[in-house]
C-alpha cells in the first residue's frame, strides 16, 4: 500500500451530501476483475453526458462541462472536499480504487459512511473528518480562490490552507501507523497466527456447530 505522510494539492469541491458509491463508480464498471483503471470512470454519470460502460472507450465521449472535475484546475485535484455521509451505500471498494486512480490522495468531509472509511485506509486514500463549520469555511475559501491548495500532515494530524493551520483531525493510532508506513495489514495480522489458531481451537470446543 502507498504510504501517506504529508500531501499538498488542489481541493475539488463536491457540494452535495450523501454522495454514494453508486455515484462514485456506477455498477457497470464493477464487472472488472482488476483493481486498476477505474479513474476515467469515477463519477461517470455526472462526468459524461452520454452512457458509459466497460466496453465503451472514454475518448470521444461527451464530457459534462458543468461537472467540477471536468473544469481546470480541478481535473488535477488531489483532495476532494465533500459534504456529510460521503461514500454511503454499497461496500464496493471500486469506489476507493476509482478515486485513487483519478489521482485523489485524500477526501475531506464532515462525516463518512463506515465501510467507505475502512476501505480508504486499505488503499492509502486518507479520509479526514472535520467539523461542519470548518468544511463550510473551506467551501467558501475554494469558491473565492480557484485552485486553492490544502496541505495535510498526517503525523501532526493537521490541515493547513493559505499559510495557516485551520484544523486538527482525529485518527485511530493503529490506522495512522499503517497509513504512515504503508503497511500490509494481512502480514501484520499473520504475525498473530498462533493466537488465531489458539482461539479457533477453543472455539471448536465451545461452539462445535460452527466447524
Amino acid at each position: 500500500m502507498q504510504a501517506f505522510t504529508q500531501h499538498t494539492g488542489i481541493i475539488a469541491p463536491l457540494d452535495r451530501p450523501n454522495v454514494d458509491t453508486d455515484a462514485i463508480i456506477p455498477k457497470q464498471f464493477l464487472k472488472s476483475i482488476k483493481r486498476s483503471g477505474f479513474g476515467p470512470n469515477a463519477f461517470d454519470d455526472w462526468r459524461y453526458l452520454d452512457a458509459g460502460g466497460p466496453e465503451i472507450e472514454n475518448e470521444g465521449r461527451r464530457v459534462n462541462p458543468d461537472f467540477i472535475l471536468n473544469q481546470p484546475p480541478y481535473d488535477k485535484a488531489t483532495i476532494l472536499l465533500a459534504r456529510e455521509n460521503f461514500g454511503c451505500g454499497s461496500s464496493r471498494e471500486h469506489a476507493v480504487w476509482a478515486l485513487d486512480d483519478f489521482g485523489f490522495r485524500a477526501v475531506v468531509a464532515p462525516s463518512f459512511a463506515d465501510i467507505f472509511y475502512n476501505n480508504s485506509f486499505k488503499n492509502g486514500l486518507l479520509p479526514i473528518v472535520l467539523d461542519a463549520d470548518v468544511i463550510d469555511d473551506l467551501f467558501k475559501r475554494v469558491s473565492e480562490n480557484n485552485g486553492l491548495e490544502l496541505s495535510i500532515d498526517l503525523e501532526a494530524q493537521t490541515v493547513s490552507c493559505q499559510g495557516e493551520k485551520i484544523a486538527t483531525f482525529e485518527i485511530d493510532d493503529f490506522r495512522k501507523h499503517c497509513m504512515l508506513n504503508g503497511l500490509d495489514d494481512i502480514a501484520l495480522t499473520l504475525q498473530h497466527a498462533d493466537e488465531i489458531t489458539v482461539f479457533e481451537e477453543k472455539r471448536k470446543q465451545t461452539a462445535p456447530w460452527l466447524f
Binding site: R35, S91, R92, E93, H94, V96, I115, N118, N119, K122, N123, D185, I186, T189
Partner: peptide, 8 residues
Amino acid sequence: IGTSEVEH
C-alpha cells in the same frame, strides 16, 4: 466489507 477485507 470491502475487497481488501475480503482478502484479509
